[in-house]
Each structure stands twice: as structure tokens, then as C-alpha cells.
């Protein structure tokens, strides 16, 4: 972790990764779209609407993944005061919020024709809506103070406190009766994967694409934050000197 704490060294690493993550994103997005829209079969119950899954499920996975990454970065920032950890959390929040918006709106577009409702207040949907507010609250809090450090600290605490929502989202469909069905992909556990192999190709391709999208935007975002911080330092030095 210490190696990444130094902004200059971090920039070197980030610049080395960026072209690769962008390439992986473009490639898997292409595969995911072609398979998802054309080559994969319709579902025996849901027909062509199953294609919504290839956007809805990967983005929903990312909402949990990005928030957890943000919470870990916040923890590292609070305890060890690593500057880059704060920047990583700040750069993650908008990406996570974007994935949550996609997850909720594609879910509504899928729920209407299949369930018969755009929205229901069951435990799964409600907890994901709360997640969106956590992301937005983080962004608001991080920029609410004139003293940037205070904003970082307050937002980091919110990110950590809000993490309790993540297991609630994940297990809501198992703990309580919900309209939303249980998970179809369980890497651990007895139920395994209940999606046909022909549908897993676009699902995993899109999942890789979305993850690479996060890495790419995150690295660009941190690079931007580092540049902005240097600008602030220089401006202050100018005023003072």
C-alpha cells in the first residue's frame, strides 16, 4: 500500500495500466454487445427481455464492488492518512453512482414487462435505492467543507458506516420474501450457476467490460485529482509568496 501512497509513483503505475484497461474494456464490450444482442438465445420464459440482464446484472455487481472499494480506500485514508486513498475514494463515488443509476433504471425497464411493475418497495430494490443516496451523500459531503481535509474525513466516515448496506443488498433476497428473485450466479455455495452457458458468455464479457471501465475511469479520475491538488498547492504558494 505504501508504494501507491506516493502520488508521483502512483502516476507512473497508473499511466502504465491505463492503455491496457482501456483496451480490455473496448474488447470485452464489443464481445459482450455482439453476444448479448445478437448471438445469445432468448430465454424460455422471458423471451428477448433476458437481454436486459447483460446490462442490469453487471452494473448491479459493480454497484457493490465500487462501494466496497470506496469503503476500503476510506478506511485506509482514515487510519493511515494516505493521500492517494482519499483521491481513490473520491474518484470512485461518481462511477458507483452511475452504475447504481443504470442498475435501477434497467431494473425498472425489465420489471415492467416481466413483473408487471416499474418499481416495488421490496427489500432488494429499496436497499439499492439507499445505496444510490449513499453515493450521492458521499459526493456532497466530500465537497461540503472549505477545508478539504474535513470533507474527506466526514465523507470517509459516511462511506464506512454506509457499508453495512452492502451485505443487506446482497442477502436481502435470501433473508426476506422479495419480488426480486435470488441470485443466479453463486460462485460459492450449493446452488452454483443457474444460467445457461450460452447466456454466460455475454454476461461475463459485460462484467469484465464494466470492471475495466471502472479501472479506467478511476485511474483517470485519480490522475485528475492529483493534478487539481498540485494546482491548488501552486496557487496557494503564489498567493503566499
Amino acid at each position: 500500500m505504501h508504494r501507491f501512497a506516493n502520488p508521483t509513483r502512483f502516476l507512473r503505475i497508473a499511466n502504465a495500466i491505463l492503455p491496457w484497461s482501456a483496451a480490455v474494456m473496448a474488447l470485452s464490450l464489443g464481445v459482450g454487445l455482439v453476444y448479448g444482442l445478437v448471438l445469445s438465445p432468448p430465454d424460455y420464459q422471458q423471451g428477448e427481455t433476458v437481454r436486459i440482464m447483460y446490462v442490469h446484472v453487471p452494473s448491479s455487481w459493480m454497484t457493490l464492488f465500487v462501494y466496497t472499494a470506496m469503503a476500503i480506500a476510506s478506511f485506509v485514508y482514515l487510519v493511515w492518512k494516505h493521500p492517494v486513498a482519499d483521491l481513490a475514494a473520491r474518484a470512485s463515488a461518481p462511477v458507483g453512482a452511475a452504475f447504481t443509476v443504470i442498475s435501477l433504471s434497467t431494473g425498472a425497464l425489465w420489471g415492467k414487462p416481466m413483473w408487471g411493475a416499474w418499481w416495488v418497495w421490496d427489500a432488494r430494490l429499496t436497499s439499492v435505492l439507499i445505496l444510490l443516496f449513499l453515493y450521492l451523500g458521499y459526493m456532497a459531503l466530500a465537497n461540503a467543507f472549505d477545508d478539504r481535509q474535513r470533507g474527506s474525513r466526514a465523507a470517509a466516515i459516511l462511506a464506512l458506516v454506509g457499508w453495512v448496506n452492502i451485505p443487506i443488498i446482497k442477502f436481502s433476497v435470501d433473508w426476506w420474501n422479495t419480488l426480486h428473485q435470488p441470485a443466479s450466479v453463486n460462485p460459492v455455495g450449493e446452488s452454483g450457476i443457474s444460467i445457461d452457458a450460452s447466456m454466460l458468455v455475454p454476461l461475463f464479457a459485460m462484467a469484465i467490460a464494466f470492471k475495466a471501465y471502472y479501472v479506467t475511469t478511476l485511474l483517470m479520475g485519480i490522475r485528475r485529482e492529483i493534478a487539481a491538488a498540485k494546482v491548488r498547492t501552486l496557487r496557494l504558494a503564489e498567493v503566499q509568496g
Partner: peptide, 23 residues
């Protein structure tokens, strides 16, 4: 899209607009 064009295409559209816009 088997009669579901009004749901499938907007789903991909929302994702493209939000992710593309943020990028």
C-alpha cells in the same frame, strides 16, 4: 426484440448515455 423493443433498447441506451457521459 420479440415485441419488447421498448424495454430492451432503452436499457442499453441508458447504460450507454450514463457511462459514456461520465467517461
Amino acid at each position: 426484440m420479440g415485441g419488447y423493443a421498448g424495454f430492451v433498447w432503452p436499457s442499453y441506451g441508458v447504460a450507454a448515455v450514463v457511462m459514456g457521459g461520465l467517461f
